[in-house]
Design a protein around this nucleic acid. Structure first.
Length: 495
RNA sequence: GCCCCCAUCGUCUAGUGGCCCAGGACGAAGCCCUCUCAAGGCUUAAACGGGGAUUCGAAUUCCCCUGGGGGCACCA
């Protein structure tokens, strides 16, 4: 592993919600930068004005911060290589496009979109590869320059050699050789004067001194083009790493809008903002996504610190990875169990508040040990702990009847429990559990039946944290009142 | 259609010629623990896509096939 400080970048387009894939690339960028003592840069690629979505950029920045992947340079915090928003770098790209034209590596193209479309159609009809037909490539530079100077609308195209092949080196896949005749004279500067990705990314990565470019393997198709552009400028290439892509859970294809909506119904999402709302933790999301595309031999529950420690670009894997949400659950739950009580309390509080419950800090701290190991997502705290913060609970009458018993018997058990629990000055589980167990013993009912009735009476639900510990937190008076209420309900039921 | 990439349990992966009748994790099944639900402990089932070649020896190298993925825009 190189000990040279690496400069990495995440370069998302603000065209929609921040995606899981973006988060993972950002994580790897962050890990490599931290590991080598380098910098991690956020650059916003907003050159496609038509697709830019208001608020998307903010969502990216918020998402990265939520994940804890704080960048060292970026649009909102600046840095020595700014601006970090591509629309603010227009002049830089135009100057570089000009350099390419002057060096004979690019040329102005005056073809209209209509003509291009017509050519494409004809090529398709003839079963040829759709590609630029080279009409403007042969215009003498002097004439082209004249037409440009006269203000004629044009783009700039990069000139790919007709002969030979391009060998591009990817760190995970080795040399990738492509015949130049497979390549196309791509537009690098659009009519509106803004660059396409191909020019912008290459220029920026160089200007910002990026040493390692990690990006999705969907860029493999234009990789030879990018390498040609770098070489045309005479620049040194970064280390190229084309990461595996995420596939939908079935493994068949990328996640589509439809699948994303489907996942949302099950409480999962591939959008960072949603994951936050659904109760996933940054630790869980990071750990989970880190392992899709990175082979860690064993012990795969890791903090970010541990990831930094173990990360190497050599251990990245090139094959596509199917998303597995069950594994997300696992990592999320595991990290919740690893959290300090105070930390978890602080994270749970908003979910209770969101439900309209007013949270008492001391109670919250006391229920953490009771509910922690039962949480998969943070918002599970509602189903396991909401009753701690409610004045009253409303048990389903049916649920108050223990299995194998009738309402009358259940009411009797509740009455006895009321007496036993009310007999002492407190409702500590040290006192209550032995006495209730003694009652179970002498009554002949099962612990399941007796405790079940009590559970429903006190918590209002059939599934809850441990009964006696919960009652202790709820307090003697409230518990007795709830049991009394349950007795009332049971007595009204037909025997 | 053309081009590029990928290929180990259902899923994520370890594995760089012998240490592998292939290891870990999720999930699944069973058992234990148990006041519900979890958590935890133990156990089990589960894979080198197919065919050639190289080699004393191949999951590991090479070739072909097959399968999967991605790309072929004045989108990124």
């Amino acid at each position: 592993m190189s000990i040279e400080p690496a400069r990495t970048r995440i370069a998302p387009s603000p065209t929609g919600h921040m995606h899981l894939g973006t988060a993972r690339v950002a994580l790897y960028d962050y890990l490599l930068a931290k590991k080598t003592g380098g910098q991690f840069v956020l650059r916003i690629e907003d050159t496609d004005l038509k697709r830019t979505v208001p608020g998307a950029e903010q969502e990216i920045m918020d998402g990265l911060r939520w994940l804890g992947l704080q960048y060292d340079e970026g649009p909102d915090i600046g840095g020595p290589f700014g601006p970090y928003r591509q629309t603010g770098r227009r002049d830089i790209y135009q100057a570089h496009a000009r350099i390419l034209v002057d060096k004979g590596h690019a040329y102005p193209c005056f073809c209209t979109p209509e003509r291009l479309e017509k050519v494409r159609q004809e090529q398709m009809k003839r079963k040829e590869n759709p590609r630029y037909d080279g009409t403007c490539r042969v215009i003498p530079p002097v004439e082209a320059a004249k037409r440009v100077a006269s203000g004629e609308a044009h783009t700039i195209r990069f000139k790919i050699p007709y002969e030979g092949a391009t060998v591009a080196h990817d760190h995970l896949r080795g040399d990738i050789t492509t015949e130049n005749k497979q390549l196309n004279d791509q537009v690098i500067l659009k009519t509106d004067g803004l660059p396409t990705y191909h020019l912008a990314a290459i220029v920026d990565d160089h200007e910002m001194q990026i040493t390692h470019v990690m990006r999705g393997s969907e860029w493999l198709g234009t990789f030879p083009l990018h390498v040609n552009i770098v070489r045309a400028f005479g620049w040194e290439e970064p280390v190229w790493i084309h990461l595996s892509v995420f596939l939908k859970p079935s493994g068949k294809g990328k996640m589509s809008k439809r699948e994303a909506a489907e996942a949302m119904k099950d409480g999962y999402s591939i959008f960072i903002k949603d994951m936050q709302d659904l109760g996933f933790t940054p630790e869980g999301v990071l750990n989970w996504s880190a392992l899709m595309g990175w082979g860690v031999a064993e012990d795969d529950v890791m903090t970010v610190e541990q990831m930094i420690d173990r990360f190497t670009i050599d251990s990245l894997t090139p094959s596509p990875a199917a998303i597995n949400f069950q594994k997300l659950d696992h990592f999320n739950a595991t990290h919740i169990r690893l959290m300090r009580t105070e930390d978890l309390a602080a994270r749970l509080k908003p979910y209770f508040t969101r439900e309209g419950l007013s949270v008492k800090e001391d109670v919250l701290l006391r229920i953490i040990p009771l509910i922690r190991e039962r949480l998969t997502t943070l918002d599970d705290c509602i189903s396991f702990g909401a009753f701690f913060f409610k004045d009253e609970v409303t048990p389903n009458p049916e649920d108050l009847i223990a299995k194998g018993l009738d309402a009358k018997q259940s009411a009797e058990i509740a009455r006895r429990a009321y007496q036993i629990l009310g007999a002492g000055p407190d409702i500590s589980h040290e006192r209550c559990e032995p006495s209730m167990r003694a009652y179970v013993e002498e009554s002949g009912f099962s612990a399941n039946q007796v405790f079940g009735i009590l559970r429903v009476a006190v918590t209002g639900q059939k599934v809850s944290p441990p009964l006696f510990e919960s009652m202790e937190v709820i307090g003697r008076d409230v518990c007795l009142r709830r049991i009394e209420n349950a007795i009332g309900i049971l007595e009204k039921l037909p025997a």
